[in-house]
Design a binder for these strands. Structure first.
Length: 312
DNA sequence: AAGTCGGGGGC
DNA sequence: GCCCCAGACTT
């Protein structure tokens, strides 16, 4: 959950998750719906799938006990170089250094290392810290200390250098501009994207939905008829083409994801006849409980609350 | 090495 | 509006 997600955001999800799925066994046996529902709103939904895959692997191949070495951990689904090293160091006190955003920032400033993040830089950081990890019971302490230092003192903006235990030997501070490190990664230019979607309702208060594939964006989530295009008009034309008729247009809204600047164009349509190819009629009451694409779930809830789906 | 994949905190 | 967040995985 903590991969690319702030601690304050994760805490409520983590607590709810452990109440419903307290162990590997429960997670391994859980339904996809429950897993997705517990993850709803956290983003990066492939993490949820990999976490369940991890639970099943731990149960089937390791008898319910996660391995303790970084090498073994790194082979498991969802555990990359960072998480494998973090579990090895923090849970099992192995001499490993997980390099997250916090530790990268602390070490880049300490050595005034202006290079962009890379495998070579990671390796350099590990060699730098390795001697400090040798003492018994040290990895668990030092790793968490460096993370906390980065989160609370050596912050991205306005670092509190006066409170820093490393201030005597910090090269970035000596240069006078610690906030210049680490080097920023070149941001991908956000691209405009227009997504038109339609709540098609029939006389039985059903809406048209389909389930997205397990790969790609919003894996396994449900969605109404939906098309995307670089332009607004283009996306609306494609939607009408998909539906075979002209839906009523509602007010567009903005909600971005990853590197796209997305304008969402909602529509509604009184739709009689059989479902579109690949879609199903779902009772509105049930649809509101399904794992819809989160931004669309929000819109459907608001629409249902305003009762604009039934009226014409 | 660069793209993909969400959503929110905090300024 | 922007930067960043206890990154992993594919291409």
């Amino acid at each position: 959950m903590l991969q690319q997600t702030q601690v304050v955001t994760v805490v409520p999800y983590f607590e709810r998750w452990l109440r419903e799925l307290p162990g590997w066994r429960e997670l391994a046996r859980a339904s996809e719906e429950q897993v997705l529902r517990l993850w709803e709103g956290l983003g990066y939904y492939h993490r949820a799938r990999r976490l369940q895959l991890l639970a099943q692997t731990v149960m089937e191949r390791f008898g319910g006990e996660i391995p303790s070495s970084r090498e073994e951990l790194e082979k498991l689904p969802g555990l990359g170089p960072y998480t494998a090293a973090a579990v090895a160091a923090i849970a099992f006190n192995q001499p490993e250094l997980p390099i997250d955003g916090n530790i990268r920032r602390v070490l880049a400033r300490f050595g005034a290392d202006g290079a962009k993040a890379s495998r070579a830089q990671d390796e350099h950081f590990r060699q730098l810290v390795a001697p400090e990890l040798r003492a018994p019971d040290r990895p668990r302490q030092l790793v968490q200390a460096l993370m906390e230092l980065g989160a609370l003192v050596c912050k991205p903006r306005q670092p509190e250098c006066r409170a820093c235990p490393l201030r005597q030997n910090c090269r970035a501070l000596a240069q006078g501009h610690p906030e210049r490190y680490p080097a920023k990664k070149v941001a991908l230019a956000p691209r405009p994207l227009h997504i038109s979607f339609c709540w098609a309702v029939n006389d039985d208060s059903c809406v048209l939905l389909r389930q997205r594939p397990e790969k790609g964006r919003f894996p396994g989530h449900f969605e109404p008829p939906l098309v995307e295009a670089p332009g607004a008009r283009e996306s609306q034309n494609l939607l009408a083409e998909l539906l075979g008729s002209q839906p009523r247009t509602l007010a567009p809204f903005r909600r971005d994801f990853t590197t796209y600047r997305v304008t969402w164009h909602p529509h509604v349509l009184e739709f009689s006849g059989g479902p579109l190819d690949g879609y199903e009629w779902v009772f509105l009451e049930l649809a509101l409980k399904l794992n819809l694409v989160p931004v669309l779930a929000r819109h459907l809830r608001e629409l249902a609350a305003s009762r604009r789906l039934q009226s014409r």
